[in-house]
Design a binder for these strands. Structure first.
Lengths: 150, 150
DNA sequence: GAGAAAACGTTGGCCCTCCCAACGACCTTC
DNA sequence: GAAGGTCGTTGGGAGGGCCAACGTTTTCTC
């Protein structure tokens, strides 16, 4: 039994063999480990994703940012409100187009992103601990093929 | 690009390499395929899981059922209400212990479970289509080790 | 046998992720 | 100048996940 995991009874016999069920359990474990790690930095998953995307693309229009990471405009508003309130991003009106605002990281945002990226990497190392290095490469390759993610 | 999948831009560079992110995307695809398949039988994921568990264990007390599949008692109430309304399960008071009711499948419930199990299997075959038979075994073995599921 | 503790099923509520629709202000196209 | 589209926001909901409290019933302890 893996450390930090309550032992659960086996899933029903018609569910247990379904790869989607196993994927769901594995993903839930991954999400839980990462959520716990990010919570220590007062962030949640989409906060981290948005900070990372702004670091890659910034300054970037909010709508463009949302399209890039496939986050609904309504949800983007909430995430940016949280990040702005925490002093991690700035929204600056675009003088050339008053419909838009440009999102950029503050120095605090850059620092928080570094911390979170390290924390997320450690959580992911724990997640994949049961696999050898060669198996990890194989596993990631298969995940990419299944999910269609580039 | 896999059939039926909109092409998305790549995730941010600090997020893209995270196994938990890839797991999340793969799991979301699996969940989506299964949800679509089950929806044609007017069911959702937990409806299917509960039917399958009752088939394995029934008649079974509601609280015991919830523990077996790790579903919160509050959520169990909702799922059983839906299944009972649809005529797929029965809740029968336990004469030996009036706190409990025993959950069992109706003949309609058994039939619906057979249909859903077939539909879920087909959806899962589609999910794993990019992998060879040998890779599928490897993949499932790795998922079991990572998730700690028996 | 009485009282305390625990179990059962339900109701209430919240959070997170995911998704759709409509609005007012603004920009682009013809 | 008018029509159509874009931007960011507000409104709403669904599904999954989780915690707390209640009334009733059963079990356990003294």
């Amino acid at each position: 039994m893996l450390p930090g995991m309550a032992e659960n009874p086996p899933a029903p016999s018609r569910i247990r063999p379904l790869p989607s069920w196993l994927l769901g359990r594995a993903a839930a474990r991954g999400r839980g480990l990462v959520a716990e790690a990010l919570a220590r930095h007062d962030l949640r998953m989409w906060h981290h994703v948005v900070l990372a995307a702004v670091a890659d693309l910034g300054p970037v229009a909010q709508a463009e940012l949302g399209r890039t990471i496939s986050l609904d405009p309504k949800d983007m508003v909430g995430v940016l409100n949280d990040l702005q309130t925490a002093g991690l991003v700035l929204r600056t009106p675009d003088p050339a187009d008053r419909r838009k605002n440009a999102v950029s990281l503050t120095p605090e945002g850059e620092q928080r992103l570094r911390e979170c990226t390290r924390a997320a990497r450690r959580a992911n190392d724990e997640l994949l601990a049961p696999l050898s290095a060669a198996e990890r490469e194989q596993f990631l390759d298969m995940l990419r093929r299944i999910s269609g993610v580039r």
